Simulated scan of single mutants.
Amino acid sequence: MVEIRFNGVGQSFEGREVLRDVTRNFVGGRITAVAGPNGSGKSTLLRLAARLMIPTSGRVETFLDGAEVTGAAYRVLIGMATPEMELYTRLTVRENLAFLLGARGVSVEESALQDLLARIGLSTEVLSRPAGQLSTGMRQRVRLAVLFGTDTDVWLLDEPGLALDKAGCALLREEVRHAAARGRLILWATNDRAEKEAADACIDL
């Protein structure tokens, strides 16, 4: 089982304190919602969990089956869905998925891509369309397809439901619940009531 431990973690940017003395253990098989107003540190907490930044104070540690995991071995465990994840607009959806999933060693056979599209509620016709021609909501579904396809041990979700319609949000909640049932560790930055209710625990920043 995977576990991420925050021990007295603080984070400041140019003298502005964003997080203070966060001490919390996150474990596989549970969904933890991270809530709070804009600027409260939700995205920062996820980036710290992903080791995309070094905390100003304290430590972030990750363990897999009781053994600490660091460096490249840890990066393999991480999957993220963030607004910063860009698709290649001139490439088709098929080419984007083939590249992004293939880089993580995931099968990109046609049948696998079709299964992924079904899970995110898109038709197979979308595969041949350039990503730049997709709506904001459709692009967000493609980003989620990358996360679902890699199915890493840790899922870090930075308000992925903001660009989705009601049906898309329902699909997202279902996939997240299934992932937790498979033992995935879920950190979900959100202020959406339904998403917070789907979580096992909620942190208010």
Score class of each variant (00 low, 15 high):
residue 193 R to F: 06
residue 194 A to E: 15
residue 172 L to I: 07
residue 145 A to D: 04
residue 50 A to E: 11
residue 155 W to T: 03
residue 127 L to T: 08
residue 37 P to G: 09
residue 174 E to K: 10
residue 148 F to D: 03
residue 161 G to H: 12
residue 1 M to C: 07
residue 191 N to S: 13
residue 162 L to M: 13
residue 143 R to D: 02
residue 129 R to W: 02
residue 174 E to M: 02
residue 2 V to D: 00
residue 62 T to Y: 00
residue 200 D to K: 08
residue 18 V to Q: 09
residue 68 E to S: 11
residue 72 A to K: 14
residue 149 G to H: 04
residue 177 R to E: 12
residue 41 G to D: 12
residue 104 R to V: 04
residue 166 K to S: 13
residue 19 L to T: 06
residue 180 A to W: 03
residue 78 I to L: 14
residue 41 G to K: 08
residue 157 L to R: 10
residue 10 G to K: 05
residue 166 K to Q: 13
residue 51 R to K: 13
residue 144 L to V: 07
residue 183 G to V: 10
residue 201 A to K: 03
residue 132 G to H: 05
residue 108 V to G: 08
residue 108 V to Q: 10
residue 104 R to S: 09
residue 138 M to E: 15
residue 24 R to S: 01
residue 137 G to L: 12
residue 22 V to F: 06
residue 118 A to M: 06
residue 123 S to Y: 04
residue 177 R to V: 11
residue 151 D to I: 00
residue 143 R to K: 15
residue 24 R to A: 01
residue 67 A to I: 13
residue 113 L to C: 06
residue 134 L to T: 09
residue 178 H to V: 04
residue 65 D to V: 01
residue 120 I to W: 09
residue 86 E to R: 14
residue 41 G to I: 12
residue 100 L to S: 02
residue 112 A to Q: 13
residue 182 R to A: 08
residue 173 R to C: 04
residue 86 E to H: 11
residue 123 S to G: 15
residue 180 A to Y: 05
residue 156 L to K: 03
residue 18 V to Y: 09
residue 165 D to P: 05
residue 42 K to M: 10
residue 74 Y to S: 06
residue 186 I to Q: 02
residue 162 L to N: 15
residue 9 V to H: 10
residue 116 L to H: 09
residue 13 F to S: 07
residue 149 G to A: 07
residue 14 E to I: 07
residue 190 T to E: 06
residue 131 A to S: 15
residue 30 R to Q: 14
residue 60 V to G: 03
residue 27 V to R: 12
residue 97 L to I: 03
residue 6 F to N: 01
residue 16 R to P: 07
residue 156 L to E: 04
residue 35 A to E: 12
residue 170 A to R: 11
residue 197 E to L: 14
residue 50 A to M: 08
residue 119 R to C: 03
residue 201 A to T: 09
residue 106 V to C: 10
residue 87 L to W: 06
residue 187 L to W: 00
residue 46 L to H: 05
residue 50 A to H: 11
residue 185 L to Q: 08
residue 165 D to T: 10
residue 41 G to P: 12
residue 83 P to M: 09
residue 63 F to Q: 01
residue 201 A to R: 12
residue 164 L to V: 14
residue 52 L to G: 13
residue 114 Q to F: 00
residue 126 V to N: 06
residue 23 T to F: 02
residue 12 S to E: 14
residue 29 G to E: 10
residue 190 T to R: 07
residue 182 R to D: 11
residue 83 P to E: 11
residue 101 L to F: 05
residue 167 A to H: 14
residue 57 S to C: 05
residue 205 L to M: 08
residue 176 V to N: 00
residue 6 F to L: 14
residue 151 D to R: 15
residue 49 A to T: 02
residue 21 D to E: 15
residue 64 L to K: 13
residue 9 V to A: 09
residue 91 L to C: 11
residue 77 L to P: 04
residue 61 E to R: 15
residue 155 W to I: 00
residue 115 D to S: 14
residue 184 R to Q: 12
residue 44 T to H: 11
residue 117 L to G: 06
residue 97 L to G: 07
residue 188 W to T: 07
residue 176 V to P: 01
residue 122 L to M: 15
residue 97 L to Y: 04
residue 60 V to W: 04
residue 70 T to G: 00
residue 158 D to F: 08
residue 154 V to D: 04
residue 34 V to T: 01
residue 105 G to Y: 11
residue 4 I to G: 01
residue 112 A to S: 12
residue 45 L to V: 04
residue 24 R to T: 01
residue 181 A to G: 10
residue 111 S to E: 14
residue 202 C to T: 15
